[in-house]
Design a protein around this nucleic acid. Structure first.
Lengths: 253, 253
DNA sequence: TTTGATAACTTGTTATGACATTATCAGTTC
DNA sequence: GAACTGATAATGTCATAACAAGTTATCAAA
């Protein structure tokens, strides 16, 4: 069986902004993604080859390749040398972007809110010091919150921030996610390393999350780094597993 | 404060195989990664700029860029336009490759083994049919296993395979991981979509994993696709959270 | 009929060149 | 002294070109 080659509708690539700020490869990737999601490119179908696609759009091959690579990284396309590029089967799950829980909830159409439990300046213990790459005993901002979605508690969030952010206030955190606050201070999160696990809820956590004592919790430890590679946040989070889970798309390279 | 620029030792880039099968950009990436892990490139230090690096090594800029990009994707480096490329702080966690639990254990120096509980051909129910992109009622191979590491039970694995693999035998799965078996049949896994959650163990699972009844379990649902985009496996796995957790590195693009 | 070589096709790798965009910093001007 | 200006340096984007390597289909020969 030969896979049918689907040539993309020509009008899909009209109106490319060659002078705008949005890179060409990104515009191409967006349009192909739209074609996949919209069903114009059915699962398993073969994409037009890179060279032909480039000629048809008046673009160079590296630009086309870059666009396709974006979608390969997202898990939407698969490439094979000598064969071509095909659309991956299966319903598309959006890639886990580097977003906070707060942004996740907003994106999911829910109304997030926050209850700040404690907010103190504390000296870094050995673990926090190692994670934030500061000296043991250095002051850090320790904050403990409950995150609610549509007024239902979803997670208990415990975070430590390095000395630059000791002045973050409870008021700021009440109405915004932590990452929003950091962005407002010019911090751009670029890399985050997470460890996802599970354990039983403590009595206090069960009360806070309004679940039975001894229920299973989904946990995540995360260290986030800004665009200069400096650690700007370490957190230990506990989620209600019936209300939250993690999606990950892995691509073999 | 100006970040000190660390020029990589010249001998680090000796012996590049220009004719071997390993791409140049990959060799460069490997060597830079080794320099970071070995401490020759301390956290926060700035990397030599792309153009200079290319000239010094007698390589073109795209090759250098590709090498650096590999490490950016791994979360080891951070690039900023106008600034340069810096080493990310924090101990390096290896990226979650697209590996099976079996391979994970081997890589961690443990001795994995498998106990096959059941192995049957069953018609696909609605959920499995959707995940594997086959028709409801189509025959699938359903296998249920316990995975042990150094003879300690780590996880209960339940998987469904499409019709091409109905002849996979219990013997094969006894001594090899599922992905090993698939590889032996010429299947290359390229994309996997996972959802990670948590729940309480059932009585049966508690017995199989030798844990207390009602303990918390780490769960993962996964659909894996081969290099033509076809779904080749759907699985529901339960892990003992005291013995296993997931590491994920996210990079903002 | 089967096997082997060959051609056509497709992605993978690398080189060279140019210009755009952004951040830093020193100098200048008000 | 503060604010603006320009030079400088770095990564980001895009084009053109060539060759390598893997896959498939075709066709001829055994």
């Amino acid at each position: 069986m030969t896979q049918k080659e689907h040539s993309l509708p020509a009008d899909l690539f009209m109106d490319l902004e060659r002078s705008g700020p949005m890179p060409l490869y990104f515009q191409i990737a967006q349009r192909i993604e739209r074609a996949i999601l919209g069903g114009d490119l059915p699962a398993g179908s073969r994409l037009e080859n890179e060279v032909a696609l480039g000629e048809r759009l008046g673009l160079s091959r590296p630009t086309i390749r870059r666009a396709i690579q974006e979608l390969v990284d997202k898990g939407l396309l698969v490439r094979r040398r000598g064969i071509g590029t095909q659309v991956v089967h299966g319903q598309v799950t959006r890639r886990v972007e580097l977003t906070s829980l707060f942004d996740d909830l907003v994106g999911g159409g829910q109304k997030p809110s926050t209850r700040v439990l404690t907010l103190d300046v504390v000296p870094a213990d050995a673990n926090v010091a190692e994670k934030l790459a500061v000296a043991e005993g250095d002051p850090t901002l320790h904050v403990r919150r409950v995150r609610l979605a549509d007024d239902v508690p979803v997670a208990v969030l415990e975070n430590w921030l390095p000395a630059d952010f000791l002045d973050v206030s409870s008021d700021e955190l009440k109405d915004h996610g932590l990452y929003q606050v950091l962005r407002g201070r010019g911090v751009t999160i670029r890399v985050a390393k997470q460890r996802i696990g599970a354990r039983k809820a403590t009595v206090e956590e069960a009360v806070l999350l309004e679940i039975d004592r001894g229920s299973a919790l989904l946990t995540m430890d995360r260290t986030a780094y800004d665009n200069s590679g400096r650690a700007v946040e370490f957190g230990h989070h506990c989620y209600r597993p019936d209300l939250y889970s993690f999606e990950v798309t892995l691509v073999d390279k």
